[in-house]
């Protein structure tokens, strides 16, 4: 069975064709190795980097998972991130380590831009 997909690994957005022959996955249309990895992952276990914000007592910081996590765990992960309570977080802080046993840490990617008072 052939599947068409757009590679999301970089802004080029290559149009990939993925075919599963027996147990082998064949990818075409990609311009680099990342496309092949992406297509294979999409057919087996699709993953995404999750980004969000955390509202601390001293402002709003942005966070990301430092590795892509399985797509099916994103809904649960965003809830965990939303429940984090903190007075202050700084760039680089690990907020949640090994979130949902994915091997990915949730890390702070930006200090609060504005002082924040409720």
């Amino acid at each position: 069975m052939k599947t068409n997909m757009i590679c999301i690994m970089c802004p080029l957005g290559c149009e990939l064709t993925v075919e599963k022959v027996d147990d082998e996955i064949k990818v075409s249309g990609n311009n680099c190795i990342r496309g092949e990895k992406y297509a294979t992952s999409e057919l087996t276990e699709p993953v995404r980097v999750l980004t969000s914000v955390i509202i601390t007592k001293n402002g709003v910081v942005s966070v990301k998972t430092d590795k892509p996590i399985p797509k099916k765990k994103i809904e649960e992960a965003i809830k965990l991130i939303g429940n984090v309570k903190a007075d202050k977080l700084n760039f680089g802080d690990v907020v949640i380590s090994n979130i949902l046993n994915t091997g990915a840490n949730v890390v702070v990617t930006r200090d609060a831009v504005l002082d924040f008072k409720e």
Partner: peptide, 12 residues
């Protein structure tokens, strides 16, 4: 918009 954004932001 970029094709990758249609894929990962809408299709997903």
């Amino acid at each position: 918009g970029l094709r990758r954004n249609i894929s990962q932001c809408l299709d997903d």
